[in-house]
Computed example of a mutant assay.
Amino acid sequence: MALLLVLVRALIVVVAAAVVSSSGLPVPGYDGLAIGFYHETCPQAEELVLAEMREIVREDKTLAPALLRFMLHDCFVRGCDASIMLKSRKMMAERDALLSCSLRGYEQIERIKAKLEEACPMTVSCADIIVMAARDAVFLSNGPRYQVETGRRDGKVSCDIDAYNDLPPPGSNIVDLKIYFSVKNLGWKDLVVLSGSHTIGRAQCASFAGDRLYNYSGEGKQDPSLNTTYAPELRKACVPGDPFDETYVEMDPGSPYTFDLSYYRDVYSKRGLFLSDQALLDDRWTREYVERMASADSTEEYFRDYSKAMTNMGRIEVLTGDNGEIRKVCGAYVD
């Protein structure tokens, strides 16, 4: 009887939660964030972001992966606070760091912000726009469209040195990757799941050719772990000895603009583009996940895991309540 009472009470809690979730009211999230935060102040916010993202991706499909990457760069450096948008004046801002030099999406975030300012002036933060745009970039690439927590405020500080300290370089090994992620309260599963973002998009030769093709470990040779039939394809595209080669190579050649499991099949067959991709095979837990996704018949598990991992990343060092600000223009100058 006692067990039955416990089960009934648990069922009541679940049903109550479902009722609140479906009522249209904000659902409490993490540290001041909530699903549906703008329900009363700007109820059309998420629909406006999606509509503008549809146009952006229709005009240039390469902007979907670019805006997904944009969120990682923002959240890993000083948290998800849109500090990546701030421009340099007296000091160098994040966007001027070497690891950010190939980042794209500034104009598109401003474009979305302008639409929201027309509808709901000084209401929706640039930080939330970046998170919503990333979610919709995934969705418009045939990935999941999960619920996002909103309510972030924009940071007022941006410094290039933070980018050098906080962003994991593409040549990172598995130990370094796990440290970079753990510092941000992200675990090994977040690491291996979010790495799957490389299933869409392109990378410049300068970001991987030295480590993978021409100077592995400073020894002037090719990375021995690189698939021997894949390596010649990359060599055709990337010029040897040019550390600033801006030639683009697709990260998932089979389906570079479709959000699927091809990335894990590539990594498992040693066709990961970056050392950090291949490093996922050097840890028991991440390797097992790669193997499972590489042989999976459905994206269901991965999409569920990805939605959770993106939510976790969206919680990094957020500013809420009275902290930070709401900017009219995302790309203001940092003092």
Rank of each mutant, 00 (worst) to 15 (best):
A64Y: 07
A64L: 02
L67I: 08
L67E: 04
L67P: 07
L68G: 09
L68M: 11
L68P: 00
R69D: 08
F70N: 04
L72E: 13
L72R: 10
L72G: 10
H73F: 12
D74F: 06
D74P: 00
D74C: 06
D74K: 04
C75N: 09
C75S: 14
F76E: 07
F76M: 15
R78N: 15
C80L: 03
C80A: 13
C80Y: 01
C80E: 04
S83N: 07
I84T: 12
I84F: 13
I84S: 05
M85L: 13
L86M: 15
K87N: 00
S88I: 00
R89S: 15
K90H: 12
K90C: 11
K90Y: 14
K90W: 15
K90M: 14
M91N: 13
M91P: 00
M92C: 06
M92S: 13
E94N: 01
E94P: 00
E94S: 00
R95Y: 06
R95Q: 12
D96G: 00
D96L: 08
A97W: 15
L98V: 14
L98D: 14
L98W: 10
L99C: 12
L99W: 03
C101A: 07
C101D: 09
S102K: 02
S102D: 12
L103A: 09
R104P: 00
G105N: 01
G105E: 08
G105I: 05
Y106D: 14
Q108K: 14
E110D: 13
E110P: 09
K113P: 11
K113W: 09
K113L: 09
A114N: 12
A114P: 02
K115N: 11
K115D: 10
K115R: 15
L116M: 10
E117P: 00
E118T: 11
E118I: 09
A119Q: 11
A119S: 15
P121L: 10
P121H: 04
M122E: 09
V124H: 01
V124C: 04
V124D: 03
S125E: 08
S125H: 03
A127Y: 04
D128S: 05
D128M: 04
I129M: 05
I129Q: 08
I130V: 07
V131C: 00
M132F: 14
M132K: 08
A134R: 01
R135I: 08
R135E: 11
D136Q: 05
D136F: 01
D136C: 02
A137Q: 10
V138M: 11
V138A: 13
F139H: 11
S141E: 09
S141T: 13
S141R: 12
S141D: 07
S141F: 13
N142K: 05
N142R: 08
G143R: 09
G143A: 10
G143I: 02
R145F: 02
R145I: 06
R145P: 03
R145A: 15
Y146M: 07
Y146C: 03
Y146T: 02
Q147V: 05
Q147I: 07
Q147L: 15
Q147M: 14
Q147P: 11
V148M: 15
